[in-house]
């Protein structure tokens, strides 16, 4: 049994290392400016934890396979200096890792969006996302709860007859954004907690009813992606998603104009 178990542990460790090394299953490619920081942080942590993982499993396998076969075990009740040294080393390593993630986190959340950022409102409901662009005036018209009506397509409760700022607002079901321009999303929910997650953007943020949560990012690669909900929101949770379309600036302008025309 000793051999079976230590062999199993060594084999399992080897398979795990190979699967990580060859990147058989891996992150989708990063398409945002802060994503590189996330990926670098993941890689660094993987390196450190990987070494600890392999070391611990192999020592365990060794102890099982090579235990004493005769005589008594060694009478050893511990070694305080060694224990303290290892605890300090572990603390330094782990805290170092946590601190090394500071810059990426600060870039995501401590610093606000740049002034030239394109601001878009996101309204989540069971089980869809709606997006609102402020239009040429750059102002979001006020929202009126009473007017919210999915059947007539008034997802944000706008009243263009009374509020001039609402007249040029553009509401879409697709989040279209220009490439290489800072985007600020204002996340709002109408019913329960939802979440905004685009794996390629390396962004995930819960959308909490009663709060407006801003996030910002810059997409660096054009293409069609998916926004998915990651916070359990009810029976349609698994199917709650919206398309994300990253376009070159001129294409984005055209796309937005087309959306405005269809309102």
């Amino acid at each position: 049994m000793a051999r079976v178990l230590s062999f199993t542990i060594v084999l399992g460790t080897a398979v795990t290392v190979i699967l990580f090394w060859r990147r058989v299953w891996w992150f989708p490619p990063n398409i945002s400016t802060q994503g590189a920081g996330v990926d670098r942080e993941f890689g660094l942590t993987l390196l450190v934890t990987g070494i600890l993982f392999v070391a611990a499993q192999l020592i365990l396998a060794y102890c099982i396979g090579r235990g004493r076969k005769s005589g008594r075990a060694a009478y050893n009740t511990g070694n305080l200096r060694m224990e303290v040294a290892r605890a300090v080393l572990a603390a330094a390593t782990f805290i170092g890792l946590a601190l090394s993630s500071y810059r990426t986190w600060a870039r995501m959340y401590f610093i606000g969006a740049p002034r030239n950022a394109l601001r878009i409102q996101v309204e989540a409901e069971q089980f869809a996302y709606w997006f609102r662009y402020p239009g040429p005036d750059g102002v979001f018209g006020p929202m009126h709860l009473r007017l919210v009506n999915d059947a007539t397509g008034n997802y944000f409760g706008l009243d263009p007859t009374r509020d001039p700022a609402s007249r040029d607002d553009i509401v879409t079901a697709t989040l279209g954004i220009p490439e290489n321009r800072p985007i600020e999303l204002l996340l709002m929910s109408r019913d329960v907690i939802h979440s905004f997650y685009v794996p390629q953007l390396r962004i995930q943020q819960d959308i909490v009813p009663g709060m407006v949560i801003p996030i910002h990012f810059t997409a660096t690669r054009t293409g069609d992606y998916e926004i998915v909900c990651t916070q359990l929101c009810g029976l349609g949770h698994y199917a709650m998603r919206a398309p994300l379309k990253v376009m070159k600036e001129p294409n984005f302008k055209k796309w937005l104009a087309k959306q405005a025309a269809e309102q």
């Binding site: 992150f27 802060q34 920081g37 996330v38 942080e41 993941f42 942590t45 993987l46 450190v48 934890t49 782990f94 890792l97 946590a98 993630s101 990426t104 986190w105 995501m108 979440s195 997650y197 794996p199 390396r202 962004i203 995930q204 943020q205 990651t230 916070q231």
Partner: peptide, 15 residues
């Protein structure tokens, strides 16, 4: 350790 680092957790949370 991965999940304890906020920016990495942003990617892996709820997965």
């Amino acid at each position: 350790i991965f999940l304890a680092e906020p920016p990495v957790d942003v990617q892996l949370h709820a997965t």
